[in-house]
């Protein structure tokens, strides 16, 4: 199954929760905590629901809330999509 890219995650975050004026999402944000990017727990819940629908997967609630950076969330998503092949 398709792997989710950082670009796709970025688009999902912006579509679900907008973007802050003070944050440059186009930079290297892989290891920047979501909190610093301006995304709170609700923004991540909203984004997770969108990712689940787009990739036809189910993201475990606890692991999702523990994924506090884009890299961690992408690893979680892509680990699940890879094992679903």
């Amino acid at each position: 199954m398709a792997q989710m890219t950082l670009e796709e995650l970025r688009d999902t975050l912006v579509a679900c929760a907008g973007e802050g004026d003070a944050v440059d999402l186009s930079g290297d944000i892989l290891d920047v905590p979501f909190e610093e990017l301006g995304y709170d727990s609700l923004a991540l819940m909203e984004s997770a629901a969108r990712i689940e629908r787009a990739y036809g997967i189910s993201l475990p609630e606890e692991a999702t809330s523990e994924a506090d950076t884009p890299r961690a969330l992408l690893d979680l998503v892509n680990g699940i999509t890879a094992s679903a092949v």
């Binding site: 929760a17 907008g18 802050g20 301006g38 609700l42 909203e46």
Partner: peptide
């Protein structure tokens, strides 16, 4: 308004 507020 900032785009952050629009979806919510």
């Amino acid at each position: 308004l900032p785009s952050r507020l629009l979806p919510q």
